[in-house]
Design a protein around this nucleic acid. Structure first.
Lengths: 186, 186
DNA sequence: AGAATCATGTAAGGGGTTACATGATTCG
DNA sequence: CGAATCATGTAACCCCTTACATGATTCT
């Protein structure tokens, strides 16, 4: 009964990225998802969960399905993006993640699809995520988040978080460097 | 029906740490857990989940409960550690986490209880976690995990992981430095 | 012929979250 | 007197995971 209401652009929107290049049936999506050097590296889905998510995306009208009968086999459900689906996917792809815990899976998934779609997109994604991380850094250094009298545990947690964000930034910047044409170096 | 069987020393064993200093009733555990500068920083439990976990720990015979009636109130359930519970807690506390994703909550929880119990324990915990992280680093550099021909995405993921582990190590070592008596500097 | 794989799913179970229930005490 | 807090929980729900079901091809 509870409407998600607030913009919950969640990771399942990543799946739209497989269909973005053209209509596909469920099992083919599963195979692309499972390629060892691909998205599988960071997001491992069970087949059954994939089917559940596809059904959900269909209900959310991000995907439309058409049945393609096969002789002597269950019919394939060919999924294609709706206009809303294409919009939702591009929005997901362009939005940086808002918490450090989303870097490990969700941001890397964005990176995967950005690179698949159009390598130039990767630079935009990196830029907006770098800006977001710099924002986290400032928030962490805000007086409200700095414990007045230093206690071991609170300090350790604070340092841990600073350290995490800084390391994300280092990595993001290194990724950007790696993408700039080598010509730039003079 | 499936027995966890293999050593699944999970985070709920952290709760035993509250009782380690002496028997407590559920609500008091909740209050200590909710102190803003304490474990709350890293692990936020709903009251109902806390009660559920306490029940589970009781069923697992890590805790015993004795009812203490109060007039005009529901009786308090006073929890105390069993021998098995004390053992399980010490084992949990002494074991480094095995995956990077467990650093953010579970390792910091270990740190919290180690410091509460006995500051000297913190150094042992740091040392064993440092060793574990160095192991992860070596595993990541193993030929099996290094992609033969460099592809953008696989490389980015690999670099992300290396970067994460290195940053954990930096932080762990900085924590250790902060704990060594300042006398050491000459 | 028999086993494995392709290609869909459905069903049951476990764990966690949200919301609700209860009844006295204390605070303003 | 009314509201918030203390101090226990229970009930319903959602999500994910594991296991099972189906029925035809393809491989040995």
């Amino acid at each position: 009964m509870r409407t998600p209401a607030s913009a919950s652009v969640t990771i399942e929107h990543a799946l739209l990225g497989f269909v973005a290049a053209g209509p596909l049936h469920g099992y083919e999506i599963y195979r692309q998802l499972s390629e060892p050097a691909g998205l599988w590296q960071v997001w491992r889905l069970k087949q059954s969960q994939l089917y559940a998510l596809l059904t959900k995306l269909e209900e959310a009208q991000c995907l439309t399905a058409t049945l393609q009968p096969q002789d002597g086999r269950p019919p394939r459900k060919i999924y294609a993006l709706t206009a809303a689906g294409r919009f939702a996917f591009q929005a997901w792809l362009a939005t940086p993640v808002t918490h450090g815990r989303q870097m490990r899976i969700e941001f890397l998934a964005k990176l995967y699809f950005a690179h698949r779609q159009e390598p130039a997109l990767v630079l935009q994604l990196l830029a907006s995520q770098i800006a977001a991380c710099q924002g986290w850094l400032e928030a962490l250094q805000t007086p409200a988040n700095v414990t007045p009298d230093p206690a071991f545990f609170a300090d350790a947690v604070q340092q841990f978080r600073l350290n995490q964000v800084e390391s994300f930034l280092d990595w993001l910047i290194a990724c950007r460097q790696a993408l700039l044409p080598p010509v730039e170096r003079a």
